[in-house]
Design a binder for these strands. Structure first.
Lengths: 125, 125
DNA sequence: CCGCAAAGTTAGCTAAAGCTAACCATCTGT
DNA sequence: ACAGATGGTTAGCTTTAGCTAACTTTGCGG
């Protein structure tokens, strides 16, 4: 039935971590998000049950096709939104924080519009 | 401790209703937001307890100074954000829906930046 | 005056998503 | 070989914010 902001946040974190290190475990997520192990354990269980990730016997997490697609989508939103805010003069810290919130609630339609606007703006500068 | 998105949404709704009709009651909010009376009853109780509104003996709702200020702030965010999205080409419906979500999570800093950008954009067109 | 409709409240359910405490299973170092 | 660290899970608490069912209060119409 589609992920909630919280689930998307976990997925995005897994994506980011998977680009920084070869293998991602629950404990890495907990560390990175500053959540407790049980919280992560449950969230990972849900992502697995809903077929966004798989977890092998050693506790290493891998995306399913659907999971990867969604993670990349969220991550793109994050980067585009924070770049856009920064382009307009918002400091990096704030831009990233706000992008983190907006990325989970904005519609595809609005996001694509903003993305196009950002590209144009980027060119003309 | 500051209102959550849900509380802000109620406040904004009261503000909008108060501009459409002389008096606002809980049942009007319920009608407008498509929530049940008990849900609204609790929310109104919280807004009252936290001093954003007062409710007189007849059930009519009025803002406190703080409540009005916050309601106007949220409402301004809503209008500016949806105008901005529309200016960039997003349809009214979607723009309003997205504004509704973003208005509760964006920082003052980013909002003011976007607002300024919108004004500029508005002028040059 | 009786009865109904409208407005509000109370009690209690649910789901989401964080938490702690406590436990289990490995793996490692002396 | 066994103690402790590391990683994960289970059970159960808390808050938020929606819901239904059922109640109270009030104001009318006939």
């Amino acid at each position: 039935m589609g992920l909630k902001p919280s689930g998307e946040m976990y997925l995005e974190t897994i994506y980011v971590l998977s680009q920084m290190k070869s293998c991602v475990r629950s404990v890495d997520i907990a560390e990175h998000m500053n959540f407790t192990k049980p919280s992560v354990s449950r969230a990972v269980g849900i992502l697995k049950k809903e077929n966004y990730i798989s977890v092998d016997n050693d506790g290493y997490i891998n995306f399913t096709d659907e999971g990867l697609k969604l993670a990349q989508k969220i991550y793109e939103r994050h980067t585009v939104l924070s770049e856009l805010l920064m382009l307009l003069g918002v400091d990096k810290e704030t831009a990233s924080e706000d992008a983190c919130k907006i990325e989970h609630v904005i519609s595809d339609k609005s996001f694509e519009t903003l993305k196009k606007h950002m590209k144009d703006k980027q060119k003309q500068q």
